[in-house]
Structures are given as structure tokens and as C-alpha cells.
Design a binder for these strands. Structure first.
Length: 920
RNA sequence: GCUCGGGUGGUGGAAUAGGUAGACACGCAGGACUUAAAAUCCUGUAGGCAGUAAUGCCUGUACGGGUUCGAUUCCCGUCCCGAGCACCA
């Protein structure tokens, strides 16, 4: 019987569905293991080819863990809110829910055809009201909590109100916005609205004015991780900075914990590094400088990491958006400053970035005093200082900061070197090394010593204090969009008021159009009745990352109507043991989820402080394009190897009509009408195509659909081939050359079980060599899977098969364990063979075979080696060496052996000519 | 500019507590079966030199040095590729 993969795969896929083979329940008798894929956004294009790579890896791992006796949670769902469905709705009027459901159906079909072992009874969709109820619930919790820096955790806002009533806010150390100090008396005499405004500054989910990335083309604000190089990630539209009143999440309160807890995660170094960068902790000092605009005096505060360079500070710089600009601009400079700021405002973020290194600035008219040198320092305004970082103002030390240096050179400001022997004639000396000079009491100290010494002095003189600054900003949480979670907030007499949690979910209303209103309000403002208790509801919706921030918790207890996740389910499944997905979420989803989880941890709803213990990033899949070469001005195509003899134009050709870089000429003629009469110049009777690695895209005709491969080779081949392609974490082109090799392996494996088209296995005892083959394989597959080195374990199967073919071994003792080993990789064929071997339960219920060391030890013997008649040590030699060979080994390796003489050598393994292993 | 990865045959890639470099697979070449093709099976395949041959020798893991009996692996320098961050004071 032939290996009929289509029939076998269909048969077992429906068997698994019918028997709910992969359904899991909490089971305290077994250890748990939680394997999670980053759930996909169901786009109209169907499953992206990069997706299966990670999914297959996670499926192999979870099937392996199941065989190892773990109770494995391996769920799947959909990140279903998102821009594409909404934009399609704007164009066509189709409800985004309809588009989304249709796409989900297609995704499900594709996923099913690859044979994944998901427990579909746990599916979640972020756009399902039963799910987003819990997104809204978490938001309300954040609204009703504040972050206490003393206890380093979130606490109830009611407790804060009690403190305010008793003693005001003087003793409260909270992560908060800018607040005036008030006493208990002042608090109690405030109006309701004033109190609400004050509390808003403390809430973890808060409404506040902030500079946002506004994307006019999309009509919405975007988070920092949704913008790249001044363009929106979705669509590539220009983004500008705008001040707007937006919902935000106080992620910055958790910056230190997000940073510290990275250490205990098993994530790749590069990913942790990216997060550290994004969090951007820097240690330094906040310092006060006396400034005067000629009429009034102020204390301007700045942040610096180089307090040691204070003696070289010759001017100050403010960000154009800084609130100090107004106070410090003198009347003479008013006009110039106005013009500069208007100019800066008009520029988009992108333009600002393009102009990096182009020096611009304007003098404010005010002067500060250097507290150590008493020198007068002009206060400037320049774009290179950012409003959002530190205090939006700096002391400029041109000798030791390249940006200050360029600025000083351009505007002819004084530059004072502070490091002995440094050359600052061409550029600044930024390195934190050397011996201080021109620096009063710091002279003679190294930079390393000078930094703390300077801060000590600053603190002593009450000019400032130590401070840690983070780059991580609060997450902007409002989107002026339709297709997202509505906020459970309504406005009662102008006060943002939470909806009672028992009234959740606040469901997305129907609207006549998915566009903003004429007055520029978000689409939800079009809804007929968008009120709660008679008051207007918030019209923004939540961003994409809202729904994906806690979905891994919902999988633990997906149908619970009373809680996001029950205590029992959470304390059994705890957190994700293995998370697989792309790096593109490094600074978005993976930060927000960690924040969300820590918040829920503070409140006692979850028992682990980190959501994802181990994380693997599967590499990006690029496209591998093929080219044909048209001779210029003709309809003749010349084969790759001969193209240099002609003037040719390179043309992309659909990779689906090319096999192993050979063009299928008939398909090519039919591909496009203009090629129907094409002529070809062949080499050796074939047309060879050129190729290149490019981005996978329709326009380059290099998109390969996984369904197609399932149809022509089978899912098992697809699964094994994708793993065989190379290391999981490495980016690589999607290249189907070579898929035949893996397919051939499966066919050959199948044939071991079939003699003359009859299924037949022998009950005979296995030979020593056969056992050795099996146990080498068990060991290899086990360690490879544990190390996520799936490509080498596929190779190991091939090697084992080649060895078994030598004796056409069809013994049950060998083949039955091999079927189990193969089942994570190629589950359908394994299931069929397992069934034929006489088992009536799924192979996934079997146990991973045990590796027995004795079967794989090499035969060897010890050989004494002596120099000058004195026995030095024994060589362990392979049994197959003859006496002559041993002597020649000793001769050849005399140098090595003399070196070994005297060392405490336990074992030396030698093969003809070479020493291959020395065990000390 | 800074940070982190990575450079191995015609191709994808194996092998690093330093120990037979190129496993496995693709491709290619030759052969068997076949009227033929497909499928299948067998043999060869880093490069160079010598030999009728079995075989032997030399050179080879981006480049240049170093440590070592021994380096693809460790150290220093250079070049190239990829990813991320980017006026963060």
C-alpha cells in the first residue's frame, strides 16, 4: 500500500476532532505545562506563511511534553480587533465583525489542515463581548487603583482618598502626574470636580493631556511602538505630535520592576536587551539652577547623568515644548522665539528626524547662574532637547557631549575641557574616562570617582538630589476608532465615572458609518444611543494591545462568567512555560502584558509576577523570488546560465510555477497572456531561473501558501520540512527546494512497515546494532527537542532510517518506539502506523520511550603507552584498530602524547591517525 | 553613532566545557530498472596535486595576528551582512 497522506491526514484530523483528543482539564495528579503561541490577527490574506513555523515548533514541543507525562495546555485564539477590518468596513460598509468572522473561519481551516493539537474548546476571540468584558474589567481596576512607591505596588484609590481626608497628600509617595501639595482641610473643601481632577493624576488608568502621535490619515492616535521612523506601522502614513486629552496607562510606575524581573526570564539576550533599552533606566541627578529673565527669578530643574561635568556647563537648553519657555523668554526675544517654536510645531515627527544633526535653536534672553563657577549661562531653546524626557531642560557641557558641542560651535558658545589631555578641537570627548581638570574640588579624580563626588556635593549644598530616570512612557490607551473595546466610562457632569462592574460588558454599538463624525468625533459618537444611566459614554475605543494583554490568563478558564480566571485554574496553570512568537512584539505586547500581569498580581488575581517564563522568537520568513530573463525588445527568454550573452531584463516569475529553480514552461505560457507565445533559449533542455531573497509579497510573486503544500505533499511533510529548513530562531527564506527529501523520508519510513503492500511487522528480537540505532535516536530526539534544535532531530530520523534500511528491519521492538518519537513531528502518519500496530488509542496517549545507555556504548579497549621504558598512561582505543594502526597513531601523535605526559589524563580516545578526545 | 547577533562546499545547514570540519538533505554527475517518463534503488560529489588504480599528499570554516601538542570553536585587530535603538542629557 502506498503512503496516501491525503487520506490519512483527513482521517486522523477528524478522529482528533471527534474524540476531543487534545482537550485538557486541570489535573493535580500530573505536572502542568503551558505552551502558547502568539495568537494571530486574522487578516484577509489568510494564514501568513511565517506563522506555521512557530506554530509547528510549539506543537512539536507540546506533543513531546504530553508524551513525557505532562498535562499540557496548548490553546489558540484570535486577536480579532484591528485596523484592516475597519478600513475594509469604511470602504465597503461591511461590518468589521462579519469580515473578522469570515477570516477566522478561513484561519481555522488552514490551522486544522496542518494537524495542530490545540484544545479548541478554549478558543478566545478578543472581539467577543464575553471576552472583552474582562478587558474592560481590568481597565476599571486600573482606574480605581494608584501606585504606591513606598510599598511598590498598586493600591485601591479608596485608601488614597482616606489618606487625603486625614492628612492631605504631603506624605504620599505615588507614581503620579503633576500635583499641587494640599492639606486635609484643603482636600475636604474641594468641589467634587476638583477632587476628581486631583485623583485622576494618581489613577493607574487616567485621562490626561499629553503629546501624542497623531496620524491624520488613520484619524487616530498611535502608541510609540505603533510608529516607526515617523510613519505608522499599519499603512505607513505620516505621524505628527499633538497635545491631546487621552486615556493612558501608568506603565512607567512599573518601570523598575519590569526591568528587574527581566533577569529571571528565559528570553533571548537580544530581546531582553531591547526591553532594557525601551525601559531606558539612567541614573543621575536632578539639579536646580537659578535663572532670571531680568524681572523675576526662578529655579530651573534639569536632569543629568554627568554631574561631574558641572564646571564645564556653559549654557542651558530648553525643549521648545517646555513650559519654561514662556516664563524665560524676554520681551526682546519674544518674536524670534515665537517664530522658532511655530516652525518646530509645524514639522512632523518624520521631518524632525530627517533633520537630525542639523543644528537649530534660539536664545531666550534669560540667563542662569552656574552654582559652582558663578558664571552667567545663557538659556537657549532648541529642538534637540526633548520635552518628554527628564525635565525637558538640560545643562549643556559642550566639551563632553557631542550634541552640545555641535550646538556651541554653531552659536559660538564657550567650550571648557574638563579631562586632562583630551582633544576637543574637532569633536567632543564623550567617553566616561580620564582625570578631571578645570573642575575645582573634583580636580585629580577619575570620572568614575567624580560622578558620585559631584552629586554628594550637590546634595550637600541642596542644589538637587540623586534621581533615576526612565525612557519608558505611559501607554496612550485611546484610539479614535470603531473596531475596538469600548471604554466602560461615562461622563457625569463632566466627571469621568466608571460603569459598575456587574454591568459589564459595555457592548460595541451599531453605527451607520465607520468614519469620524463631521465635528471630528470618533465613530462611536454616531451611535444612536451611546449613553449610560442617561449620561454620555466615552467615544474612544481601546488599542490593539488591550485585548492581547491578558489573553493567556483567559485560556486557563475560558468560560468562567464570574472571573477572568478562577483562583483554582490560575494556581494550577500559573503562567506560560513556553511562549513562541515573533520579535516584532518586543517593545509592544511583551511590555504591556508584563505590566498588565504585574498589576493583576498586585491585586492578588494572579499568582505569578511574570506572564511568560520562556520565550522563543521564531525567525522571520522571507520570500525567495525567482526570475526569468527576457532578451530586450523580444518575447524571448534566456536561461539563467546563458543570460550574460544577451541584453536582458530581469522579470519576477511566480514561484509556484518553478520547481527547484527550473521553470515549468507550459505553466509559464498560461500564467499571463503576454507570455503565451514566448520563446525560450534553454540550457541542457531546461530553463533555469535566477533567484533572490526578498520580502515576501504578492508583487514579487514569491508567496507560497501552506495549504498548497499540504495538498501536494501532506501536512506531515510540511511540518518536518519547516523544521528541517534551519534553526528555529534564525531568519530564512521560504524555500521549497529540498522538500522532496523530507517527503521521501516519510515514504521510506512508511515502507518499513509494508511488505508487498501488506502491513507486516516482525516480532523477532532486535539485534545489538538495531537497538543501538534506536537508542541513539531516542537520546538525540530528546535532547534536540529540549534545546529547540528541531532541524537536527529531523536529520537524526533520516540517519536512523538509513541504518535500519541496511537490514530492512521491520521489528516491532524497534519500530513501535520510533513511531512514538516521530509523532510530535509527523502526527498523522504516526497515528496511522500506531493504529496499524494494533493500538486503539491515540499515539499521543503513549509514553516517550526510555533511553538506555548500555545499547549505545562504543566498544573499546585500553592500550598502555610508555616512553623511555616507563609506563605513562593508557590510551582508550577503538576496538577495530589493528596493532600496526595503533603504532602509527602513537608515532603520528608523539607531540600530543608527550604533552599529555604528566597531565592527569583519565582517558584518551583515538581513531586512525587522530586523537579525538581527551578526558582529564 | 550605540547595542546585540552572524560570516563554514553549487545550496539549506551539521559539528563549539578546543580534539576525525562539511553530518543530514537539496542540487549535480554516473549507473540499475523501464519502450519511455515518473517513481524507486545504487555510486560519486570542498578545492588542488600525484597515480592506471586502490590510494597518498597539500590547502581549506570572511581576512590578519595571538594563545595551544591541537583552533570553525578562545583572545586581539580589520572587513562584510542582518536585527534593534537612535538627538534619552
Amino acid at each position: 500500500m502506498e503512503y496516501n497522506f491525503l487520506e490519512i491526514e483527513k482521517k486522523w484530523q477528524s478522529y482528533w476532532a471527534k474524540n476531543q483528543t487534545f482537550k485538557v482539564e486541570t489535573d493535580n495528579s500530573k505536572p502542568k505545562y503551558y505552551v502558547l503561541d502568539m495568537f494571530p490577527y486574522p487578516s484577509g490574506a489568510g494564514l501568513h506563511v511565517g506563522h506555521p513555523l512557530g506554530y509547528i515548533a510549539s506543537d512539536i514541543y507540546s506533543r513531546y511534553k504530553t508524551l513525557k507525562g505532562f498535562n499540557v495546555l496548548h490553546p489558540m485564539g484570535y486577536d480579532a480587533f484591528g485596523l484592516p477590518a475597519e478600513q475594509y468596513a469604511i470602504q465597503t460598509g461591511t461590518h468589521p465583525a462579519a469580515t473578522t468572522n469570515k477570516n477566522i473561519e478561513r484561519y481555522r481551516e488552514q490551522l486544522d489542515s496542518i494537524g495542530f493539537s490545540y484544545d479548541w474548546s478554549r478558543e478566545v476571540r478578543t472581539c467577543d463581548p464575553e471576552y472583552y468584558k474582562w478587558t474592560q474589567w481590568a481597565f476599571l481596576k486600573m482606574f480605581s487603583h494608584w501606585y504606591n512607591n513606598e510599598t511598590q505596588k498598586a493600591e485601591s484609590i479608596d485608601s488614597l482618598v482616606k489618606i487625603f481626608e486625614k492628612e492631605g497628600n504631603t506624605n504620599v509617595n505615588a507614581a503620579c502626574g503633576t500635583v499641587e501639595i494640599f492639606s486635609a482641610q484643603e482636600w475636604n473643601s474641594m468641589s467634587k470636580k476638583q477632587q476628581a481632577n486631583s485623583l485622576m493624576e494618581y489613577r493607574i488608568a487616567y485621562l490626561g493631556e499629553t503629546s501624542v502621535n497623531w496620524c491624520a490619515a488613520l484619524g487616530t492616535v498611535l502608541a510609540n511602538d505603533e510608529v516607526k521612523e515617523g510613519l505608522s506601522i499599519r499603512g505607513g502614513h505620516p505621524v505628527e505630535q499633538r497635545k491631546m486629552n487621552q486615556w493612558q496607562l501608568r506603565v512607567s510606575a512599573y518601570a523598575q520592576r519590569l526591568l528587574d524581573d527581566l533577569d529571571e526570564l528565559e528570553w533571548s539576550d537580544s530581546l531582553k536587551e531591547m526591553q532594557r533599552n525601551w525601559i531606558g533606566r539612567s541614573q543621575g541627578a536632578q539639579m536646580l539652577f537659578k535663572v532670571s529673565n531680568g524681572k523675576e527669578e526662578f529655579n530651573l530643574d534639569i536632569f543629568t547623568t554627568r554631574a561631574d561635568t558641572i564646571f564645564g556647563a556653559t549654557f542651558m537648553v530648553l525643549a521648545p515644548e517646555s513650559e519654561w519657555v514662556e516664563k524665560l523668554t524676554t520681551s526682546e526675544q519674544q518674536e524670534a522665539v515665537q517664530e522658532y517654536i511655530q516652525n518646530a510645531k509645524r514639522k512632523t515627527e518624520r521631518e524632525r528626524m530627517m533633520e537630525t544633526r542639523k543644528v537649530s535653536g534660539v536664545f531666550s534672553g534669560s540667563y542662569a547662574v552656574n552654582p559652582f563657577t558663578q558664571e552667567k549661562m545663557p538659556v537657549w531653546i532648541a529642538e534637540y532637547v526633548l520635552a518628554g524626557y527628564g525635565t525637558g531642560a538640560i545643562m549643556a557641557v559642550p566639551a563632553h557631549d557631542s550634541r552640545d558641542y555641535l550646538f556651541a560651535k554653531h552659536f559660538n558658545l564657550p567650550i571648557i575641557p574638563l579631562i586632562e589631555g583630551c582633544d576637543i578641537s574637532q569633536e567632543s570627548f564623550d567617553a566616561k574616562e580620564g582625570i578631571m581638570c578645570n573642575s575645582g574640588f573634583l580636580n585629580g579624580l577619575s570620572v568614575e570617582q567624580a560622578i558620585p563626588a559631584a552629586i554628594d556635593q550637590v546634595e550637600k549644598r541642596e542644589l538637587g538630589k540623586r534621581r533615576v530616570n526612565f525612557r519608558l512612557r505611559d501607554a496612550i490607551f485611546s484610539r479614535q476608532r470603531y473596531w475596538g473595546e469600548p471604554f466602560p466610562i461615562y461622563y457625569k457632569e463632566g466627571i469621568a465615572t466608571p460603569v459598575e462592574s456587574k454591568e459589564l460588558p459595555i457592548e460595541l454599538p451599531e453605527v451607520d458609518k465607520y468614519l469620524p463624525t463631521e465635528s471630528g468625533e470618533p465613530p462611536l459618537a454616531r451611535a444612536k444611543k451611546w449613553t449610560h444611566n442617561g449620561y454620555p459614554l466615552e467615544t474612544s475605543t481601546m488599542p490593539g494591545f488591550a485585548g492581547s494583554s491578558a489573553y493567556y490568563l483567559r485560556y486557563m478558564d475560558p468560560n468562567n462568567p464570574n472571573a477572568l480566571v478562577s483562583k483554582e485554574a490560575n494556581s494550577y496553570w500559573r503562567n506560560v512555560d513556553l511562549y513562541i512568537g515573533g520579535t516584532e512584539h518586543a517593545t509592544g505586547h511583551l511590555i504591556y502584558s508584563r505590566f498588565w500581569n504585574k498589576f493583576l498580581y498586585d491585586l492578588g488575581y494572579v499568582c505569578e509576577k511574570e506572564p511568560f517564563k520562556k520565550l522563543i522568537n521564531q525567525g522571520m520568513i522571507q520570500g525567495r523570488s525567482n526570475f526569468v530573463y527576457r532578451v530586450k525588445g523580444t518575447n524571448k527568454f534566456v536561461s539563467y546560465g546563458l543570460k550574460n550573452n544577451y541584453h536582458t531584463t530581469e522579470i519576477h516569475v511566480d514561484v509556484n510555477i518553478v520547481h527547484n529553480d527550473k521553470l515549468n514552461i507550459e505553466s509559464f505560457k498560461k500564467w499571463m497572456p503576454e507570455y503565451s507565445s514566448a520563446e525560450f533559449i534553454l540550457e541542457n533542455g531546461e530553463y533555469i531561473c535566477g533567484w533572490a531573497v526578498e520580502k515576501m509579497s504578492k508583487s514579487m510573486f514569491n508567496v507560497v501558501n501552506p495549504d498548497l503544500i499540504c495538498k501536494s505533499y501532506g501536512a506531515d511533510t510540511l511540518r518536518m520540512y519547516e523544521m528541517f529548513l534551519g534553526p528555529l530562531e534564525q531568519s530564512k527564506p521560504w524555500d521549497t527546494n529540498g522538500i522532496d527529501g523530507v517527503h521521501r523520508f516519510l515514504k521510506r519510513f512508511w515502507k518499513l512497515f509494508y511488505k508487498e503492500s501488506e502491513f507486516s511487522v516482525s516480532e523477532e528480537k532486535a539485534t545489538a546494532n538495531e537497538l543501538k540505532t534506536l537508542h541513539k535516536l531516542i537520546k538525540k530526539v530528546e535532547t534536540d527537542i529540549e534545546n529547540f534544535s528541531f532541524n537536527t532531530s529531523v536529520s537524526a530520523f533520516m540517519i536512523a532510517l538509513n541504518e535500519l534500511y541496511e537490514t530492512s528491519c521491520n521489528k516491532r521492538e524497534i519500530l513501535e518506539p520510533m513511531v512514538i518519537l516521530l509523532s510530535p513531528f509527523a502526527p498523522h502518519i504516526a497515528e496511522e502506523l500506531w493504529n496499524n500496530l494494533g493500538h486503539n488509542t491515540s499515539v499521543s496517549k503513549a509514553f516517550f520511550p526510555k533511553y538506555i545507555h548500555e545499547y549505545t556504548i562504543e566498544d573499546s579497549f585500553e592500550y598502555p603507552v610508555s616512553f623511555n621504558g616507563k609506563l605513562r598512561y593508557k590510551l582508550t582505543l577503538s576496538n577495530s584498530l589493528s596493532k600496526g594502526e595503533i603504532e602509527s597513531v602513537i608515532r603520528e601523535n608523539e607531540n600530543t602524547l608527550r604533552y599529555l605526559n604528566g597531565a592527569s589524563i583519565k582517558k584518551v580516545i583515538v581513531v586512525p591517525k587522530k586523537i579525538i578526545n581527551i578526558v582529564c
